[in-house]
Write a protein that binds this DNA or RNA. Structure first.
Length: 619
DNA sequence: GAGTTTGAAACT
DNA sequence: CAGTTTCAAACTC
């Protein structure tokens, strides 16, 4: 029985609120750089078909992650596709380089020595990825040390619930006007916390704003900031014929900092000089189709500010994430599926499951009674003994037919239940993770199933009286068939919603493109025109079946223990044991929801237990 | 590549 | 919350 500290619970509650979309009034600061289990290398491997460093532990919850960091004038002299943070050539380790087509070559490698890669000092840890091929020493940020890693994550979140949230936020006020005001680039983002630079003039990569290629904002508390709109020092860095010459840029930065360049009449520019609420978008830096899609819908979302579609101001995960190294992806369905939907879906499935159990039980009892009556009648006449045996045989055939039909029903919906091991019926091969999970949860599930409070408790009590558990198996199969069918229908509706939304957003984008002809929208529009019309929400990676989490046992254990500890009503664990793995089923729902909302691993770990509790508490 | 600088993160 | 220390990246030579 796992203890669930109140403090942690409170943090997760708060955290959970943070991932609820479309409730701006209760939203924490925008969450964007979703710490994924998708390491850059892993993400990249998707496009390069390379084996993943930790295929069993890193969820591919999001499509390829790229970043945009190039100002138009730079871009003109750079590779046609520039989708990497502005590393100085000198400082870019080889693994950080990229292919000429813009595909990141390999993930960033840290060099931590004293932090065990379990603190935010470590870029890998901070970005939510395992260290892979890094040069770190005594690294604990790996699968082998998952326990320590998780502790570190919890500790970090305890210190700062937003620790793994993106530092670079999309501004809700990004308008065409604000972009036009910017002479040297388009700003759509700003640093959430702001920098605190003192000596770098915010013109070196020590500055997180500069590193992210964004202007300092009112959030910053920097001194002698020269990273603001209109700054000649800043302009000197990027303008001229040295767009891609980082050595020159750095030289210019040094000159700017020391006052050799620019008017610098103001030691520290007035806050008003800093961009406030403006957003910068560094041109059409990214050609990744998924990014085009993101950008497209971000623009689309601006058209309807208060609409739920407007994910930038309200949603913890904006469609564009301009972190130091990543852009996260946001599903079309992010605003469609809500926690409430999951709760309701689970409730419906619970009810259906219960009804199925009851119906099956009634049928079974009726049939048995009928058979028993016939048997008694037949026993009264010894001469009819053969007839009695014959009828018993008929009854068995009925049961057998039910089983076969149930098995057939299982086969009806393989497509919608392909989450790894989340719903295997008996006889279907289970993944190692689920097998492990089943071993861990078996006792709990059976105990819960035997609970008089559990919906399944009634059914199980009934079926448990049947010989050899045959009745229970059949009832479970029937319940599974019904629940999975319902779930499939739900997913199909989601597909429909996604298609509708895509159509709407596409229309809005075309309208927008017709009204404004800036390079940004043109680039997006062109790309969009080329591929978007043929996309379907579930055919391009928007939604995919996700593998089990890194350590499903840990996660599920906490779920079960949480619900067992804190709930008294019907338990999902009890209800869904008919799915052979109810906990995994709930996990799957959560994973889908989290994926749709662009959540990452850390949110997942922190979110699932409380979300499960949330669901259970409402049953 | 070693040493220095820098600022975020962590700690007190 | 402010000051200090630790840390790793950025930078310089």
């Amino acid at each position: 029985m796992q203890i669930f500290p109140i403090k942690r619970l409170a943090r997760q509650l708060d955290f959970t609120q943070g991932v609820l979309p479309d409730h701006p009034q209760s939203q924490p600061p925008p969450l964007q750089k979703s710490p994924l289990l998708v390491s850059p290398a892993a993400a990249q491997s998707q496009s390069q078909s390379q084996p993943q460093p930790h295929p069993q532990s890193q969820l591919q919850l999001q499509p390829k992650v790229v970043e945009i960091q190039v100002e138009p004038q730079q871009q003109q002299q750079q590779q046609p596709v520039r989708a990497v943070k502005p590393e100085s050539p000198k400082s870019i380790p080889i693994p950080n380089t990229e292919l000429k087509d813009g595909t990141p070559k390999k993930q960033r490698q840290c060099n931590c020595k004293h932090s065990r890669c379990l603190k935010l000092y470590c870029e890998c840890f901070a970005s939510g990825t395992y260290c892979d091929g890094c040069n770190c020493v005594n690294c604990y940020n790996n699968v082998e040390n998952e326990a320590a890693r998780r502790e570190a994550v919890e500790a970090t979140l305890e210190r700062n619930p937003n620790a793994f949230r993106p530092k670079i936020a999309s501004s809700p006020h990004g308008t065409r006007d604000s972009r036009e005001e910017t002479g040297d680039g388009l700003v759509f983002v700003k640093h959430n916390k702001g920098c605190h630079c003192k000596k770098s003039g915010c013109l070196k990569k020590y500055c997180e704003c500069f590193q992210a290629n964004i202007l300092c904002s009112e959030n910053c508390k920097c001194m002698d900031c020269k990273n603001f709109e209109g700054s000649e020092e800043r302009r000197a860095l990027f303008h001229g014929d040295h767009g891609n010459n980082m050595a020159y840029i750095q030289q210019a930065a040094n000159a700017a900092i020391t006052g050799a360049i620019g008017s610098s009449g103001y030691a520290s520019p007035p806050v008003s000089r800093k961009r406030k609420g403006q957003e910068l978008f560094f041109g059409q830096a990214v050609k990744d189709p998924s990014f085009d899609r993101i950008g497209h819908f971000q623009q689309g979302s601006h058209i309807k500010p208060p609409a739920p579609c407007s994910s930038l101001p309200s949603n913890p995960i904006g469609p564009i994430t301009l972190g130091p190294s990543k852009i996260t992806y946001r599903s079309l369905l992010a605003d469609i599926i809500q926690p409430q939907d999951l709760k309701e879906l689970c409730s419906v499935l619970v009810v259906l499951s219960g009804e199925a159990a009851k119906t099956f039980s009634d049928q079974r009892n009726s049939m048995e009674k009928q058979v028993e009556d016939q048997r008694e009648t037949l026993l009264a006449s010894s001469t009819e003994e053969r007839l009695q045996n014959h009828k018993e045989s008929d009854a068995d055939k009925i049961v057998a037919n039910d089983c076969s039909s149930t098995n057939h029903a299982d086969k009806v919906s393989p497509d919608d239940s392909s989450a790894d091991g989340a719903d295997m019926p008996k006889g279907r091969p289970m993944s190692p993770g689920t097998l492990e999970l089943m071993c861990d949860e078996q006792d709990t599930m059976f105990m819960a199933a035997a609970s008089p409070h559990g919906l399944m408790g009634q059914g199980c009590n009934t079926y448990s009286q049947l010989p050899c558990g045959q009745g229970m198996t059949e009832a479970h199969a029937e319940q599974e068939r019904i629940v999975l069918t319902k779930f499939r229908d739900c997913l199909n509706r989601l597909i429909t919603f996604g298609e509708i939304k895509e159509t709407k957003c596409s229309s809005l984008a075309r309208i927008e493109l017709g009204n404004q002809k800036d390079p940004l929208s043109n680039g997006i529009g062109n790309t969009r025109t080329g591929t978007g019309s043929q996309r379907r929400p579930f055919s391009n990676g928007v939604v995919k079946v996700v593998p089990p989490p890194a350590k499903p046992t840990q996660m599920v254990t906490s779920i079960v223990s949480t619900s067992d500890t804190l709930t008294t009503g019907p338990s999902l664990d009890a209800t869904f044991n008919t799915l052979a793995d109810g906990v995994a089923f709930v996990n799957m729902l959560n994973l889908i929801w989290l994926f749709l909302n662009g959540k990452g691993f850390f949110q997942l770990v922190a979110f699932i237990p409380i979300h499960h509790l949330y669901i259970v508490s409402r049953l």
